[in-house]
């Protein structure tokens, strides 16, 4: 049986791991290569690197981080943040990434998904979506945010995800703008709606604070994988603890 993936996320800027609340107020800590090797040894099923600085200089640093990590870590690596073109994606994949995630650039130019899927394969193309709840309606709805959550686009998140999968996205990295950084639980209505709507894997992101939250994202949110940063970064829980807990609750997990 296919197991559910536990994915630590490393937010990196200028070659250092950071972690913030609702995309701002970053706290500094950690060397990304060391962190990644630690998570690998602990049993992470995959690693996601998000370059939140994403200036051209930062991107060169990120390429180097990916190159070093890929020599030490033998699980899949996904890299995102500021990738704007096929050549940006190619650089990351050549450096050792297995997947690239694109967000703002895909919203501006959806053909990037199609071109990327044709060149690198759909399995390489992860669509990252930051979804913010829209208020004042009976029906639940979400709007796409770009630029690291700073800019509202007015685009319906569900419609966008559907279109992106048709264009070539092979996986959805779904972050709840509202829940992210608050450690109060994932937006599982969002997770379940998207997971049931598309035929590609969904990674739930944003809001993990307890073991129960991770369980809920998989059991209620129907996600294929859970991503978390803070709880692992600050050693609130080890990956091993998470896996033992989830396995005890009947979730298929790689031990």
């Amino acid at each position: 049986m296919l197991t559910k993936r536990i994915i630590p996320c490393l937010d990196v800027t200028a070659g250092r791991v950071v972690k913030g609340t609702s995309f701002t107020n970053l706290r500094d800590a950690g060397d990304p290569v060391e962190q990644a090797a630690f998570y690998y040894q602990e049993g992470a099923d995959e690693l996601v690197f998000l370059d939140i600085g994403a200036t051209p200089e930062a991107r060169d640093t990120m390429v180097e981080v990916v190159r070093r990590v890929s020599k030490k870590v033998f699980v899949p690596l996904c890299v995102g943040g500021g990738l704007r073109s096929i050549s940006d994606m190619r650089r990351m994949l050549m450096a050792g990434a297995d997947k690239v995630s694109i967000n703002t650039a895909a919203v501006h130019k959806p053909e990037l998904l199609k071109e990327g899927a044709a060149i690198f394969g759909r399995q390489c193309m992860v669509l990252a979506v930051d979804a913010k709840r829209t208020r004042g309606k009976d029906e639940p709805g979400w709007e796409v945010c770009t630029h690291g959550g700073r800019k509202l686009t007015g685009i319906d998140a569900l419609e966008w995800i559907k279109q992106a999968v048709e264009m070539g996205a092979g996986e959805i990295l779904l972050t709840s703008w509202d829940a992210d950084g608050h450690q109060a639980g994932y937006d599982n209505e969002l997770n379940r709606t998207v997971s049931e709507m598309v035929n590609v894997p969904v990674i739930a992101s944003g809001g993990a604070g307890t073991l129960e939250h991770l369980y809920q994202a998989l059991a209620i949110g129907k996600a294929d994988a859970v991503l978390a940063a803070s709880i692992f970064h600050y050693r609130e829980y080890s990956i091993k603890q998470v896996k033992q807990y989830l396995a005890g609750k009947g979730i298929p997990i790689r031990n």
Binding site: M1, L2, T3, K4, R5, D45, V75, P76, R122, Q123, G170, E171, N199, V200, P201, D224, A225, R254, N255
Partner: peptide, 30 residues
């Protein structure tokens, strides 16, 4: 869901030294 993406068990249906120290039904990445 397609692709089949993630860790899944490989049942060893052949006895072979390539499986030395790899238990049956070990998870591999697909």
């Amino acid at each position: 869901k397609i692709p089949h993406m993630g860790w899944n068990q490989v049942k060893q249906v052949m006895s072979h030294p390539v499986f030395t120290d790899i238990p049956d039904n070990t998870n591999f990445y697909f």
